[in-house]
Simulated assay, not measured.
Amino acid sequence: MLAQSQFEFQSDFQPAVQDALRFFKAGLGTNLHSVYVYGSVARHSAVSTRSNLDLVVITHRPFEDNRTTLMNTVQWRFQRSFPHVKGLNVKLALAKEVASLDSIFSWGFLLRQCCTCIYGEDLGECFGDYEPSWEIAKFWNSDVADWIRNGRQKIAIAKTAQEQSQAQIRIAKKLLRASYSVVMHKHKRWIDDPIECGEEFVRFYPDKQIEIDRLGILLSGRVIPKRSVVGLIDSYGQWLLKEYERTEFKIG
């Protein structure tokens, strides 16, 4: 079992991580199997007021009877105690589902490549090292078309600058990471930071520099006229979907 003193994150986020861990240990007791941090906090690149705290919480048994109460309580605690943390995202799973061959591209990849275990038995160790491949890229971006459609809609219906800014950031992150996934099997590296994903992508597709630069502007949170944002999502999004199809045809 990993002691709390064995993990350190950025000073702005360390108390939030520790508080979340204490809460889940108290709320789940012996049902708690392990807890992991992923995303910008795990990468030590989180930005105060802009970054979420992303957690994976794995339990031995389902806890549907008090799940809603538990999650609502932890969300309330975070809004009150850590206003500089933009949000708390929690993925829940059962240990028996994670440690199975059926989860090799989903939970296995996430825990092994993207997470830091902060409590309990690290299930990432059940899986070997992953080589950057088209199969993994395809699995994790099978929902790109849905993201494009939903992102476009959220931009269009945003009623405030804050809503639009948040929607822009979400779709920009997805498109930048999905872009890198097209070349990941060539670059042979694991990259999660959206800006770095875009930079590496244009090394292989220099003709898309303008589109990647524009996605970087959306990622900054700067509010852009809706027509321009929707136009970018439509044009670049459709090109990206076709490039996925073309890559799948070549690699299979």
Rank of each mutant, 00 (worst) to 15 (best):
F24P: 04
H33K: 13
D54W: 00
L21S: 06
L240M: 12
Q166P: 05
I217D: 03
I224W: 07
Q4P: 05
I195L: 13
P132F: 01
A156S: 12
A99T: 03
D146Y: 04
C115A: 14
E163K: 05
V229G: 00
I104Y: 15
S100P: 02
L101S: 08
L232I: 11
S100V: 03
Y236I: 06
Y36E: 07
P194D: 04
K186E: 04
S181F: 07
A156R: 09
L218T: 06
T59K: 04
A137L: 01
F23K: 02
G231A: 09
N150I: 05
L175A: 03
D102E: 02
V182I: 08
G252P: 00
Q166Y: 05
P206R: 13
E64F: 15
T49Y: 10
F9I: 05
T116L: 09
D12C: 14
R43W: 08
I155V: 04
D207Q: 15
A167P: 07
Q238D: 07
K250P: 03
G252S: 11
E196L: 11
H44P: 03
Y36M: 13
G237L: 02
W147C: 13
K173R: 15
D143C: 11
V41E: 03
I155P: 01
F82W: 06
F13L: 10
E211D: 09
Y130S: 00
F9W: 05
A172D: 08
L175P: 00
K250T: 07
H187Y: 05
P206N: 05
K226E: 01
L175G: 07
D102Q: 13
E248L: 08
S34R: 11
F9R: 00
I157K: 08
Q153M: 12
S103A: 10
A3R: 15
D146A: 11
R222I: 07
S51H: 02
V57E: 03
A26V: 14
L218V: 09
Q10G: 10
E196T: 14
G120F: 00
N31H: 06
D213E: 10
R177T: 08
Q75I: 10
Y38Q: 11
S51V: 06
I212N: 02
D19G: 00
S220G: 04
P132K: 00
S11A: 15
M71T: 08
K86Q: 06
S48H: 08
I217S: 08
C114M: 14
K159G: 13
K208E: 13
T30D: 14
I58R: 11
L110Q: 12
F105G: 03
E248V: 05
G237D: 06
L111I: 10
W107R: 10
R152G: 11
V74F: 11
D193H: 04
W239F: 14
I155W: 00
R203C: 10
L92C: 15
K25E: 12
Q162E: 02
I224N: 04
E64P: 14
V230W: 03
W107D: 01
Y38M: 08
E199K: 11
W134L: 03
H33A: 11
Q4I: 09
K86E: 01
C115R: 08
G87P: 03
L232V: 04
A16S: 14
P15Q: 02
F109A: 11
G108A: 09
H84T: 14
G124W: 12
A172T: 09
W147D: 06
V47A: 00
L240G: 02
L241A: 12
G151D: 00
G124N: 11
V74C: 08
Q168G: 06
L2M: 14
L53P: 04
